[in-house]
């Protein structure tokens, strides 16, 4: 049980250094920019974070399994296009605001189904998830271009874009949605049998097999979950923009994997937490927001993002070094 291991705040921070980093940049931007420390801005950060954050939740499961999903960016575009296109179909013209529902449902089903397809191929063929989803990254993007004929779709129903900017009580709806999903995946990973098995499958595949865990279907489910969340992110993103473009979600896999790795999930699987991932996406969200407020051009954010990713890896390596006695291979 993850939380039984927590012995002291210091040790907790050592295991989740990303939260220390968050405090650091939070304090920095609070002093560096007058607009940063404001409730309105925090809400912005949460909404901006929610898209990458939703996908990162699913990606954490897949990566703890020792797999990876590179196709999430393309799935975001497909889901967004489906959602916006379908709600405008003739047949739903007299459904009023309910016309949004078939669009959203179709998008979520498509995302989950593509996740299932990825998972099924990984399960049945034994081809590495990296290759399977690399192919899907290309193929699904092609599907989007073919489906949209390289055109953008615009949502005619204002209720759809209103949803993206609405509030639930003091918080933006999208932020609430993200936090609820985070709690749900936290519960799944830390408390349920499926969640615990996720660590077993990633930590020692053959042990999981010998213990009778059906590894194939298990991984399939996690791929479906990441597909679902990618589609959900596509829906929320298109609702924020009131439109869907075929290039939507480009490089999202990069951002998502970066946040998950920043959050401490191991690439080889077996280790990682939702709390860490939340820290990872928040760190990137705060960084982007703060730099944006300080009017640093977007170009620099890309450089800094890449540098941070590599720096975290270097730091991790240094911290785990055994000192001078180490075998030098």
């Amino acid at each position: 049980m993850a939380d039984t291991v927590i012995k002291s705040p210091v040790r907790w921070l050592a295991a989740n250094p990303i939260w220390g980093f968050i405090v650091l940049i939070f304090v920095f931007f609070s002093f560096a920019n007058p607009y940063f420390f404001a409730l309105q801005n925090f809400q912005n950060i949460l909404v901006q974070t929610s898209t990458i954050g939703l996908i990162a939740l699913g990606m954490t499961l897949v990566m703890i399994n020792g797999n990876i999903d590179l196709s999430v960016g393309a799935v975001v575009a497909l889901a967004a296009s489906l959602c916006v296109d379908i709600q405008g179909w003739e047949m739903f013209a007299d459904w009023g605001n309910w016309a949004i529902a078939p669009g959203v449902i179709a998008a979520l089903i498509a995302g989950t189904a593509l996740g299932a397809l990825n998972g099924f191929i990984v399960w049945k063929t034994g081809v590495d998830a990296f290759i399977v989803t690399l192919g899907a990254m290309l193929g699904v993007r092609g599907l989007v271009f073919v489906y949209t004929k390289e055109q953008s779709f615009f949502a005619m129903n204002f209720a759809f874009s209103d949803f993206g900017s609405s509030n639930m009580g003091p918080l933006p709806t999208l932020a609430v949605l993200f936090l609820v999903c985070t709690a749900a995946v936290y519960f799944l990973l830390a408390r349920t049998v499926h969640g615990r098995n996720t660590y077993a499958v990633g930590g020692n595949r053959s042990a999981a097999v010998n213990a009778g865990i059906r590894v194939g279907p298990h991984m399939l489910i996690n791929f479906m979950i990441v597909g679902f969340f990618a589609a959900l992110a596509g829906v929320t993103l298109s609702s924020q923009m009131g439109a869907a473009t075929p290039n939507l979600g480009t490089n999202y896999e990069l951002w998502v994997i970066t946040s998950v790795v920043l959050g401490g999930t191991k690439l080889n699987g077996g280790a990682g937490t939702i709390l860490g991932t939340l820290g990872g996406v928040l760190a990137i969200g705060i960084l982007r927001n703060g730099m944006n407020l300080m009017q640093v051009p977007a170009f620099y954010v890309l450089v800094i993002l890449g540098t941070i990713l590599i720096a975290v890896l270097l730091l991790d390596k240094q911290l785990n070094r055994k000192g001078k006695e180490e075998l030098r291979v």
Binding site: L254, L267, Y300, L314
Partner: peptide, 27 residues
């Protein structure tokens, strides 16, 4: 240097470089 000498994971390093070089180009 990062992959060969510092022995970092090449997937992450080159993913990070993908982003960083994109930024460099724009700058």
């Amino acid at each position: 240097l990062l992959v060969g000498v510092a022995r970092l994971n090449s997937l992450i390093v080159t993913l990070g470089m993908l982003s960083a070089i994109q930024g460099l180009t724009l700058i």
